[in-house]
Amino acid sequence: MVFSFFIAGHSFKSRLMLGTGKYKSLKDAKESIYLSSTSIITVAVRRAQSVMGIDSLVDALDWKCLWLLPNTAGCQTVEEAVRVAVLGREIAKKLGQENNNFVKLEVISDSQYLFPDPLGTLKAAEYLIKKNFEVLPYVNSDPVLAKQLEEIGCAAVMPLASPIGSGQGLKNLYNLKIIIDNASVPVIVDAGIGTPSEASHVMELGAEAVLVNTAIAQAGSSPKMAIAMKLAVKAGRLAYLARRIPLKHVAQASSTQYGTL
């Protein structure tokens, strides 16, 4: 139970979630997903629709062992995101996941930095929740918005660490900590993580999970990076549960002076 966690009543064995874009080959993607021991795979619905076929990663994976998290990547408006979310649910059903109502909600009108639209995300989330979706919104690291999304019924919140695909790491650490400390739903740090140490760091802060795509898919060796991320997430979770020592402003010897000559 140390490494498993729950989203909307569903239990998952791994706290490392993987994206499926940008891999150098289908073989690389399949091997990395397998070696990561992930439970949840996110797939852009638009890309899945266009590539489903004999060479498709969607078709190549064992969906009895993996949970599909359809995402609305590429949607710039509320209306687009809602329509694509519905299509994503249909793909999940075709894969045999009849009770899968999950959607990673992305509403992104900013084409340069790919920052999520907060108002559009909130509006789309409200609508999808009424349609019985389990909404996992991708958001800026905004503690106020994160709490609002939680209060309207989102199953989790997915704040970015830095711009998606940038590998810049933990640029919004203070805000991420505020979101984690005040959330009653899982906080899944998504976007910007570039190294295993960064994944471990946010897990040490108490994040429930991380979602990694580019850092694995574009690494020199994707399979090796997938293993490294898996171990880092586990180490970070254990460190969070173990509770670190308090910081001190002076040195303190590790052995006492008792009994010395």
Rank of each mutant, 00 (worst) to 15 (best):
L119Y: 15
Q218A: 09
T121F: 09
V187F: 11
N213L: 05
T121D: 15
K131M: 06
Q148L: 08
L170Q: 05
N172W: 02
G220M: 04
T195H: 10
A219S: 15
H201Q: 13
I193S: 03
V210N: 12
P116T: 13
A156P: 05
K177L: 11
P116F: 02
S222P: 12
F133I: 00
Q112F: 07
Q148T: 06
T195L: 12
E126N: 07
G167H: 04
L170S: 02
T121I: 06
V212S: 10
M203T: 08
S162F: 04
G206D: 02
K131Y: 05
E151T: 04
E151R: 11
I179D: 11
S162N: 09
I129R: 00
E126L: 02
A207R: 07
L128I: 01
L205S: 02
D142K: 15
D181I: 00
D142R: 13
N132D: 15
V139G: 02
V185D: 08
F115W: 02
A124C: 08
V187E: 06
K147Q: 13
G194K: 06
N132K: 14
Y127I: 14
E134A: 14
L136A: 12
D181M: 06
F115G: 10
L114A: 03
Y174K: 15
E151A: 07
A183H: 07
P163L: 12
P223T: 01
G153D: 01
A146V: 11
N172T: 11
S222W: 06
I188E: 05
G167Q: 00
A219L: 10
E150Q: 14
I164V: 10
I164F: 15
P118E: 10
N172A: 07
H201F: 10
I164L: 13
Y113F: 10
E151V: 03
G167R: 03
N213C: 12
L149R: 01
T214N: 15
L145W: 11
L170V: 14
G206E: 06
E208R: 11
I129G: 07
S221P: 03
Q218I: 04
L128Q: 12
K131G: 04
Y174N: 10
L119M: 14
V157Y: 09
E208Q: 12
K171H: 13
Q112I: 14
P196C: 04
V144Q: 05
A219V: 09
P196V: 01
V185F: 12
I152D: 05
I193K: 09
A217R: 01
A215W: 01
S197Q: 10
Y113V: 12
A191K: 09
L122P: 06
A124I: 11
Q112D: 09
L211N: 11
N182S: 09
K123G: 02
G169M: 02
P223W: 12
V187T: 09
Y127F: 15
A219Y: 08
